[in-house]
Design a protein around this nucleic acid. Sequence first.
DNA 1: TATTGTTATACTCTATAACTATA
DNA 2: TATAGTTATAGAGTATAACAATA
Lengths: 157, 157
Amino acid sequence: MAGSEESKIAELKREQDASDLEEFIGYNLKRAYVIVQNDFRAALGKDGLGPRVFSALSLVVQFSHITQSRLARKLGIERSGLVAIIDELEGRGFLARTTVPGDRRVQALVPTKQGITAYRDAQARVKEHEDLLLENLTAAEKQTLIGLLQKIRSGEE
Amino acid sequence: MAGSEESKIAELKREQDASDLEEFIGYNLKRAYVIVQNDFRAALGKDGLGPRVFSALSLVVQFSHITQSRLARKLGIERSGLVAIIDELEGRGFLARTTVPGDRRVQALVPTKQGITAYRDAQARVKEHEDLLLENLTAAEKQTLIGLLQKIRSGEE
DNA sequence: TATTGTTATACTCTATAACTATA
DNA sequence: TATAGTTATAGAGTATAACAATA
């Protein structure tokens, strides 16, 4: 009877998991990403920073006086797409666009004290949520995962 | 001199990689996903199937006579979002909406011969591209990655 | 000529809500 | 009442192309 029950479960599992799609890295990445992203939004709440805005703020806090062009390159998005993100961060009072003596084209992005505090707070909350979401992964597995994802990313030009 | 050159490279690498963001699974997932997705689109060309449409076709080929509701659930999207995807596949002649005797609400999705052929062809091309893109990962690493991603996915309700 | 920030625009993906026809 | 498919709509996210100011 244990055998028959096992086979029933196995059959169910096969029907659920056997899809060709499961073999594609891309499909698995997408599905996993959606889960983690939803968790991210839950962590920071309805009026909290979105993932893109959070990432931009993170880099501005860490690399004060970075220019928008450099930031866009770091984030892997277009300069034009960054404008709205910086507008939002400036609107929230988390950073300032400052002029740079010697090159009046660029606008160095400088985090405010409030911005730094908000980032530290958000960072802690996202970390906490992510840890809880991924509690069925060991620390070693998480490290392996990050390593493999960065290996994929390392091929980018 | 080798030492000084090494330290310069190390310093550059540190500046590039030291970001807090790199510690987040979500950020790494997103960046890796974008790379693989772009590769996917390159694999199937400008007028080829998009990732979502490919995924839907895959499941219809594999689970013939699946209903739209079941398919949407399998793909993790809303019923309403699936309509345009099925429209496109039907427009390309890759599947047919067929009535089901006994329940006139549902429309069983049946792949055409052309649809099956197109899927097999696309599947092979995507696989080939993905293998090339990820050639710096060993087969074992790819298996590990898929396993870890599915572990994340397994927590979903 | 090239680069920085910007605007305008369009396209993809996705969700929510409401409708219809069935059950 | 509930479900399947559908429509309408809106909001992210992103890219492309063009522009003004500056180098």
